[in-house]
Design a protein around this nucleic acid. Structure first.
Lengths: 147, 147
DNA sequence: ATGACTGCAAAGCCTTTGCACGCAA
DNA sequence: TTGCGTGCAAAGGCTTTGCAGTCAT
């Protein structure tokens, strides 16, 4: 109970965009649907590939524009997945989220969750004079395959 | 006692480079000296400006090359300070380090330390099958000036 | 003398922007 | 009909690479 589903996110994204005054369009709809099916961060170029294979294909610029809009509305979180490349993943309405371990050898992303880490971050956020709206933790090293 | 100083870092950097078979050169020496004087992350282009003003000036390519070498030797940590731009800061030998709150309005970096956060990260590192060599925490939001 | 170090310019890569056309409202 | 949404191509910004000259060892 109370568990957010992927379709919930897509629904919320459409509603939020609508409330923000955005119209409907095929490209952005395709981007939203694709993001709804991801389990972890995906880059703009990976998204472009994915959309070219399955659906009709979406212009690269439209993908970047959609990602930026969704990020600004708090529906996506942007993280750096490799030198100079950004990945995006859904922000769930219930605040549930994970962080990433990134393998410096193969670039693989391993997601993990940790409640005491979250607690520690909340406490830090409370004691510094800075209005924290989001946070991100990255562990770097070698994954079990590359070790 | 036991407190690492900036010159210690520069000294260690020179020794580590030497041990790794690198020769001495003016450009890299200037980069090391400049980094030794920084309190927080600095980008390659900021470093270029800094060096052009004070000393003789160092080619951009040499700066990037030096930063990469120092990072690979574990003497620098690379962090994304803004969309698509990397900042570098010293890695101290005693493991002492800070993390950053980044203002989404003005881009300012506010460093902070937190021991319980470090403890939580160590525990996470211990329980996932991933060989963690470094970690990074970023808080995003508004700084007190922009709030 | 040998090969690393450096600087300049050119190329790369991801991302953003300009512009004309199409579609939602 | 209005002007947002889209796609293509071009431009941007940071970073890397090729190459010839210089300097450390």
């Amino acid at each position: 109970m109370g568990t957010a589903t992927r379709s919930d996110w897509a629904e919320r994204a459409r509603a939020t965009l609508s409330d923000a005054g955005y119209r409907r369009g095929g490209a952005r709809a395709a981007v939203i649907d694709a993001l709804a099916g991801q389990d972890c961060a995906i880059t703009a170029l990976e998204l472009e590939d994915l959309l070219r294979r399955s659906d009709a294909g979406v212009g690269r610029a439209s993908i970047y524009r959609a990602l930026e809009q969704l990020e600004q509305l708090g529906l996506l979180q942007r993280i750096e997945v490799s030198r100079g490349t950004a990945g995006y993943e859904r922000v769930e309405s219930d605040g549930e989220h994970h962080h990433h371990a990134i393998c410096r050898e193969c670039g693989r992303l391993i997601p993990f969750e940790d409640s005491s880490l979250e607690r520690a971050i909340e406490q830090v956020a409370g004691r510094i004079s800075f209005d924290v709206s989001e946070h991100d933790v990255v562990l770097r090293g070698l994954c079990e395959r590359c070790d």
